[in-house]
Amino acid sequence: MLKELKLTINGQPYELSIHPRTLLVEVLREQLGLTGTKRGCNEGACGACTVVMNGKSVKSCSVLALSANGAEITTVEGLAKGAELHPLQKAFLDYGAYQCGFCTAGMLMSCKGLLNMFPNPTSDQIRDGIDGNICRCTGYNSIIRAVEAVSRGDYKETK
């Protein structure tokens, strides 16, 4: 039996009919074509599917879509403001904080969740903040340098 789901993604309200078993990541990727969000494990262990839900980072493979009813969700597609990249994105580019890029959306969203909690996180907070995201390519340290730069205020967010 299909169920109604209402949620807001990157500022856009959606109304959908879904099977109750549907996971949030499936709604994003398969129903709405927001393929920026990835799936690396499907078991809550890799963080590639991280999105920000009501201000906090969560793994979209570990949330039933119906549990997100009424929620505000931000995915990597909602990070830039129009043509202007988000400070995290600019810093990731400058510091080479990605290689294959498959973990990058999840990393960025974990960092976004972190900045929501701590606008100027310390190095330790950054390390902890991305600990839920596996990156097989970069060894994390370039990501940490990028977020440190954002934390220092090297990149200003346009209002």
Binding site: G47, K56, S57, S62, G113
Partner: peptide, 12 residues
């Protein structure tokens, strides 16, 4: 709680 899993799991 700080030692329990990772931020996303703790958030949810």
């Amino acid at each position: 709680e700080h030692l329990l899993s990772t931020p996303q799991t703790r958030n949810r």
